[in-house]
Simulated assay, not measured.
Amino acid sequence: MLQNNQLEIRHISPEVRQLIKMYADVNNCTQSEMLERIILEWDAQQSESERPPGDEDE
C-alpha cells in the first residue's frame, strides 16, 4: 500500500488499527481497502469545505 505519500497501516496507532479492522469486518473488505475508503471520504469532505474566496455565506 506504499505509493508516494499514501499511508501505510503500520504507521497508524494500534487503537485506530483495531477500529479499521472492525469497520473492515463489518464492510466485508480488507483493512487496506477500508483505510483507502476512509482517506477518500476524508479528502472528499475536505474538498467540500474548501470553498473559493468570495463565496462566504452572509
Score class of each variant (00 low, 15 high):
residue 47 S to W: 04
residue 46 Q to E: 07
residue 41 E to A: 13
residue 23 Y to R: 15
residue 54 G to P: 03
residue 45 Q to T: 07
residue 45 Q to W: 07
residue 43 D to Y: 01
residue 14 P to G: 10
residue 38 I to S: 12
residue 31 Q to S: 09
residue 57 D to E: 04
residue 18 Q to A: 14
residue 18 Q to I: 01
residue 6 Q to V: 01
residue 1 M to V: 02
residue 31 Q to C: 13
residue 21 K to C: 03
residue 4 N to P: 00
residue 14 P to L: 08
residue 29 C to Y: 02
residue 49 S to K: 15
residue 38 I to H: 09
residue 25 D to T: 11
residue 48 E to M: 12
residue 43 D to I: 08
residue 13 S to H: 11
residue 5 N to T: 05
residue 43 D to T: 05
residue 6 Q to M: 02
residue 26 V to N: 15
residue 23 Y to I: 01
residue 11 H to F: 08
residue 22 M to G: 11
residue 15 E to A: 09
residue 30 T to R: 04
residue 27 N to T: 08
residue 6 Q to F: 01
residue 19 L to R: 15
residue 6 Q to E: 05
residue 14 P to A: 11
residue 46 Q to R: 14
residue 47 S to M: 11
residue 50 E to G: 03
residue 9 I to F: 05
residue 20 I to T: 07
residue 57 D to Q: 11
residue 20 I to Q: 10
residue 1 M to P: 01
residue 4 N to G: 04
residue 37 R to G: 03
residue 41 E to M: 07
residue 21 K to T: 01
residue 13 S to I: 10
residue 24 A to T: 03
residue 11 H to P: 00
residue 33 E to G: 06
residue 35 L to K: 12
residue 55 D to W: 05
residue 37 R to V: 01
residue 32 S to G: 05
residue 54 G to D: 02
residue 56 E to A: 15
residue 30 T to K: 09
residue 57 D to S: 13
residue 44 A to I: 04
residue 49 S to V: 10
residue 46 Q to F: 06
residue 46 Q to V: 02
residue 47 S to L: 07
residue 48 E to A: 15
residue 9 I to M: 06
residue 35 L to A: 08
residue 30 T to P: 07
residue 20 I to W: 01
residue 49 S to P: 04
residue 34 M to C: 02
residue 7 L to V: 09
residue 6 Q to I: 00
residue 33 E to R: 14
residue 21 K to Y: 06
residue 10 R to T: 07
residue 18 Q to M: 08
residue 27 N to R: 08
residue 29 C to W: 03
residue 40 L to D: 10
residue 25 D to F: 14
residue 25 D to K: 14
residue 9 I to P: 02
residue 28 N to Q: 13
residue 45 Q to S: 10
residue 10 R to A: 01
residue 28 N to D: 11
residue 24 A to E: 00
residue 37 R to W: 03
residue 46 Q to C: 08
residue 31 Q to T: 06
residue 41 E to L: 12
residue 1 M to T: 03
residue 28 N to G: 11
residue 20 I to K: 15
residue 18 Q to R: 15
residue 53 P to L: 11
residue 9 I to D: 05
residue 11 H to K: 10
residue 32 S to V: 05
residue 20 I to V: 04
residue 41 E to G: 06
residue 33 E to F: 08
residue 47 S to Y: 00
residue 48 E to C: 10
residue 26 V to Q: 15
residue 7 L to C: 11
residue 39 I to H: 13
residue 31 Q to Y: 07
residue 16 V to I: 13
residue 22 M to P: 04
residue 48 E to D: 07
residue 27 N to S: 13
residue 57 D to V: 12
residue 38 I to A: 15
residue 36 E to D: 12
residue 16 V to G: 00
residue 37 R to C: 04
residue 25 D to V: 02
residue 34 M to T: 05
residue 12 I to A: 09
residue 54 G to E: 06
residue 2 L to A: 05
residue 16 V to C: 09
residue 27 N to V: 02
residue 55 D to Q: 15
residue 41 E to H: 13
residue 58 E to A: 09
residue 17 R to T: 00
residue 29 C to E: 08
residue 41 E to W: 10
residue 30 T to E: 02
residue 17 R to S: 00
residue 41 E to D: 14
residue 58 E to H: 13
residue 55 D to M: 14
residue 21 K to D: 02
residue 24 A to Q: 09
residue 53 P to M: 08
residue 46 Q to S: 07
residue 20 I to Y: 04
residue 5 N to P: 01
residue 20 I to G: 01
residue 33 E to K: 14
residue 51 R to H: 12
residue 15 E to W: 06
residue 35 L to Q: 03
residue 36 E to H: 09
residue 46 Q to I: 05
residue 34 M to G: 01
residue 45 Q to K: 14
